[in-house]
Write a protein that binds this DNA or RNA. Structure first.
Lengths: 147, 147
DNA sequence: CCAAACTGGTTTCATCTGTAACCATCGAAA
DNA sequence: TTTCGATGGTTACAGATGAAACCAGTTTGG
């Protein structure tokens, strides 16, 4: 434990990032191989599938994406005819986004795969470990939220 | 709990990624504001500061970076004269990388900042929460390692 | 009523990224 | 030896990214 040395392998920000990156990389194969989606596109699909209708801003908040990411993901899903935009009645800057039939089909196909992925990941852990990661993540989220 | 809906906010891969991204973004200000380093450059600096001497391949393994990232980060740190390359005696493909005086100075300046960042992050958690996140991350790392 | 500040969303630009192709060198096997 | 597959490292290319500028529409204050 040299005081003036940082052990990268034990440094929480690094470990957290590496872990998330590995998990996300694994998971991305599900939407990339199957439909050639990017992560922002997947999140957009997922957000709209879950909520039904959202504006781009809401989507960005819900799925923690920069607004340019949202804009591009929405444009691409629209190009695929997986979603449609409906102008807001009272505020003409706003568009309400919703999945089309085709988009919904893709969403419904992916939900079980996503759930299975998560389940299989957690299955490798003991009950205690599972509880630890879930509550630990929640605690850190809360800590960041709070300030 | 609709069975055919995925709740993004509770989906572990998403939460993990968002958390890591937020933490990493916060932390990046330390090396970005101060020295204009990118994450790969910071990891390279950190790896060499910690270990003293490494080859590019070793660096990539230690800090979980793609070899092109390593290559570019090393090139940039070399341009700054923060590290030097020494050709290996017996294998002329290999270069041993080490920090210069200037590189070491920058490293030594950042280590306390990094440690303080981690400490302040964990300070916001209770003992139980701290234990949970640390052991939870370790468990997931192990699970991914194992297969 | 009008200007200024603000907000939803897009685009531009410069940078970062990964894949794949590449070059040089090495080691093993014939 | 010579050849050929593997390995250390760089580069080219095509996409993905974020900051900042932008456009259109909206709200606020005078």
């Amino acid at each position: 434990m040299e005081p003036d040395i940082l052990e990268l392998e034990s440094f929480l920000p690094y470990r957290l990032y590496r872990l998330a990156d590995a998990v996300s990389r694994e998971f991305s194969r599900i939407y990339r191989d199957r439909h050639g989606l990017t992560r922002p596109e997947w999140r957009t699909l997922s957000g709209l599938g879950q909520r039904g209708t959202m504006t781009a801003t809401e989507l960005g908040e819900q799925s923690a994406m920069h607004k340019t990411k949202v804009s591009r993901a929405v444009a691409e899903l629209e190009r695929r005819r997986w979603l449609t935009r409906t102008p807001d009645e009272s505020d003409r800057r706003v568009e309400h986004l919703a999945l089309t039939k085709a988009g919904l089909t893709a969403y419904r196909e992916m939900v079980p795969l996503a759930k299975a992925f998560e389940r299989q990941l957690l299955e490798r852990l003991s009950h205690q470990e599972r509880a630890a990661i879930v509550s630990g993540v929640a605690a850190l989220e809360g800590a960041l939220e709070g300030k």
